[in-house]
Design a protein around this nucleic acid. Structure first.
Length: 459
RNA sequence: UCCUGAGUAGCUCAAUGGCAGAGCAUUCGGCUGUUAACCGAAGGGUUGUAGGUUCGAGUCCUACCUCAGGAGCCA
C-alpha cells in the first residue's frame, strides 16, 4: 500500500462517510431495512444498463447488489460509479431495501460513494468471474482468496479449527503445544525439512506426538494444535508439505477409549460446521445431507475384516490391484473401503510390522498393533491416525533399536516409561483433509490460505 | 523418484502438416431491472525453450523447462 493510499484511508471519517449512516456489514444488512448504512469493501462486479447501474459490492461478509439510477443519485456519484473497475476499494452509503429479486433478499439504493483506490484500467484485476486454471489461480492465491467460494471455504476452516479446540477445552483437555524446531525424527529422517540451528542440524516437526505424551503424563488429558511439515514428494489431492494437525493425548486411555473419543470428536466438529456455517456450505455447494448423518457411533472394522472386504472386492472386479494380506492399505484400497459406508470408518489393529515403533501390541495377538485409522467417507481418505502407545520401558527400548533409531535421542522419551509409565493413547487429525471432506472439495490446496505443495512456495 | 497428460492473446479454449481464431477482460459506442447482463466496434500473438524433419510446423520427431493428475508414503 502506498503512503498516499494509507493516508486517504486514515482520513476516511472526515469525508463522505461522516454525513451518513452507521457502518454495517453485508451479512447483517437485514437488520437495517429501510435505513441508510455505510458499507466498506470492494466492487465485486458492475452491470451497466444505460442510465441504470448495478454495482455489486463485497465486504468480506457477503455480497450485495447496489442500484444507482442517473436521476436518483448525485451526478458525481453516478460518474464515479460508471465504469468503476472490478476490485476497486470503496466506502459506499445507501438505503437498505428488501427486494425479492435479490439473491440475498436485500439491495442497496446507492446514495454516496468514496473510492479508496481505483484499480486502473491499464492493469485490471486479473481474476475474472469466468473460469480459470489451477496454475493461474495458485499463482494468484493472494487475490483468489477474495472470491466468494474461497472465502466461504476459509470460513468453514476457521469454524473447524474453532470447534476442534472447543471440544477439547470443554472436556478437560489442556492445550500444550510442542516445539516446531526439533532435534530428531519421530519416524525416520527422510521426510523432514532440515534447518540450521546455530550450526547444529535441526528439523521442522512432523508430529508433536512424542512431546505431548510427556505433557499427558503431567496433565492427564492434553492436546496440541499447530503446523507440521513433511518433505514427502507426494503430488496428490490429499497432500501438503505444510499442514495443520490437532493431536490429543490421554493418560490411562486404551484403544477403545481412543475410538470413542475419535467418533465423538469428528461428529462434534461436523455438527458445529452445520450449525454455524450453513450459508458458507451453500455457497460452496455442499450436500449437507451427507454431513447431517455424521453422528456416533462410527462403523469399526478390524484390519482383518477390512482386508477380507478388499480381497472380495478385487475378486468381484471392483479393485484393479489385488490386496496382499499384511500390507498397509493403498490409496485406491482406502477409497473403495470408505465408499462402502456413509460415515467415517474406523479401522483398527493393523499388523504391527507395517506400523510405527511406538504403537502398543495387542495383548491378544502381539503381531497386531493397538492402532486406529479413521477414514472419511466419499473417498476422502485418512483423516485420523492414532494408537495406544507402548507403555513398557523394555519393549519400547527394543523397538527403537529394532527400527535402527539412535537410542541417545530417545532417552527423554524412554524416561516417560521409567517414571510412572501408564497406558496412554492419542491420535493426530489433519485439518486440511477434514476441511476438504466437510466442504466436498477435490483438493486440499483450497483448504488453507496459502498451500505449500511439492514445488510450490509462491506466493 | 516413477507413470500419464497438458503448455496458443491478460484469462478460458479452438485451429486436417497449408491465411493463428472465438468468448471473457481492456478501449470506444448503445441500452431504465441487470443476475458470470446484453448488443455493436476496435486494439491485443516470438503458439513454453532449444534443436530437427518438411516446399511449408501451433500441429510431426528429440531434449529440456513448467504445470496438472496418479503411484509409493502419509494426516
Amino acid at each position: 500500500m502506498s503512503e498516499e493510499t494509507a493516508a486517504s484511508t486514515a482520513e476516511t471519517p472526515k469525508t463522505e462517510a461522516k454525513v451518513a449512516a452507521p457502518i454495517a456489514t453485508i451479512a447483517t444488512l437485514g437488520q437495517h431495512e429501510g435505513e441508510s448504512v455505510t458499507l466498506r469493501g470492494w466492487l465485486y462486479n458492475l452491470r451497466e444498463s444505460g442510465k441504470l447501474l448495478f454495482p455489486i459490492f463485497r465486504d468480506g461478509t457477503g455480497t450485495v447488489q447496489g442500484v444507482a439510477h442517473v436521476k436518483s443519485v448525485p451526478a458525481e456519484v453516478f460518474e464515479v460509479l460508471k465504469g468503476l473497475t472490478q476490485e476497486s476499494s470503496v466506502i459506499v452509503t445507501g438505503k437498505v431495501r428488501a427486494d425479492k429479486r435479490a439473491p440475498g433478499g436485500f439491495e442497496l439504493d446507492v446514495e454516496g460513494i468514496q473510492v479508496i483506490q481505483r484499480v486502473p484500467e491499464s492493469d485490471p484485476y486479473p481474476i475474472s468471474l469466468k473460469d480459470h486454471g489451477v496454475e493461474f489461480l495458485m499463482e494468484h492465491r493472494h487475490l483468489w482468496v477474495r472470491s466468494p467460494r474461497q472465502s466461504a471455504i476459509l470460513r468453514v476452516r476457521a469454524e473447524i479449527m474453532r470447534a476442534a479446540a472447543e471440544y477439547f477445552d470443554n472436556n478437560g483437555f489442556i492445550r500444550t503445544d510442542p516445539p516446531i524446531l526439533t532435534p530428531a525424527a519421530c519416524e525416520g529422517t527422510s521426510t523432514l525439512f532440515p534447518v540450521d540451528y546455530f550450526g547444529e542440524p535441526a528439523f521442522l516437526t512432523q508430529s508433536g506426538q512424542l512431546y505431548i505424551e510427556s505433557t499427558a503424563l503431567a496433565l492427564g488429558k492434553v492436546y496440541s494444535f499447530g503446523p507440521t511439515f513433511r518433505a514427502e514428494k507426494s503430488k496428490t489431492r490429499r497432500h501438503l508439505t505444510e499442514f495443520w494437525m490437532v493431536e490429543p493425548e490421554v493418560a490411562f486411555c486404551d484403544l477403545d477409549g481412543l475410538m470413542e473419543l475419535a467418533e465423538n470428536y469428528i461428529s462434534y466438529i461436523v455438527q458445529s460446521v452445520l450449525k454455524n456455517r450453513a450459508p458458507e456450505l451453500a455457497v460452496i455447494g455442499r450436500d449437507v445431507a451427507k454431513l447431517e448423518n455424521i453422528v456416533p457411533p462410527f462403523p469399526r472394522l478390524r484390519y482383518d475384516e477390512a482386508a477380507k472386504m478388499l480381497q472380495q472386492a478385487h475378486a468381484d472386479g471392483h479393485l484393479e490391484n489385488s490386496f496382499e494380506y499384511g500390507n498397509d492399505f493403498g490409496s485406491p484400497d482406502e477409497t473403495w473401503l470408505t465408499q462402502q459406508f456413509d460415515k467415517p470408518v474406523m479401522v483398527h489393529r493393523y499388523p504391527a510390522a507395517v506400523k510405527a515403533f511406538y504403537m502398543e501390541p495387542d495383548p491378544a495377538d502381539p503381531t497386531f498393533a493397538l492402532c486406529l485409522d479413521v477414514l472419511a467417507p466419499e473417498g476422502y481418505g485418512e483423516v485420523i491416525g492414532g494408537s495406544q502407545r507402548v507403555a513398557s520401558y523394555d519393549l519400547l527400548k527394543s523397538r527403537i533399536e529394532a527400527h535402527g533409531l539412535p537410542l541417545e535421542s530417545f532417552q527423554w522419551y524412554l524416561d516417560l516409561r521409567r517414571y510412572g509409565s501408564v497406558p496412554h493413547a492419542g491420535f493426530g487429525m489433519g485439518i486440511e483433509r477434514l476441511v476438504a471432506w466437510v466442504c466436498g472439495l477435490d483438493h486440499v490446496r483450497e483448504t488453507i490460505p496459502f498451500a505449500r505443495t511439492l514445488h510450490r512456495i509462491y506466493p
